[in-house]
Amino acid sequence: MNEWSLIPLFWGTLIFLLINAFACLWRGLAGPTLPDRILAANVIGTKTMVVLVLLGLAREQGIWLDVALVYGLLSFTVTLVAGRLLETGRLKGAWKQ
């Protein structure tokens, strides 16, 4: 397509982000309090979304962008539901105690 192929840059960033995600996984394991673990899950979700987009561009396939979009929506919802379960102890009914 052009002589400025940035594919190696995307692969490098992708691997760098995966290493960062594993570091956040350690916080998920060692996190003393429960909110730390939920936070680690949320952070890994965000990083995975960017990794998916990078993968899509590195492999020249557009389908990965839709996967990243759905994954971003899901990880956001997971954090909200976990925060709500942490706060009110139940899932149905209004958020207020």
Partner: peptide, 29 residues
């Protein structure tokens, strides 16, 4: 599509962070 992803991210990340921090504070942390 990537710009839509950016818009999603800028909306969802602060919201999730706020919900989690408020839940943690109300749980007594």
């Amino acid at each position: 599509r990537i710009l839509a992803l950016i818009a999603l991210l800028l909306i969802s990340s602060p919201t999730a962070g706020h919900a989690l921090a408020r839940a943690a504070f109300r749980t007594g942390l």
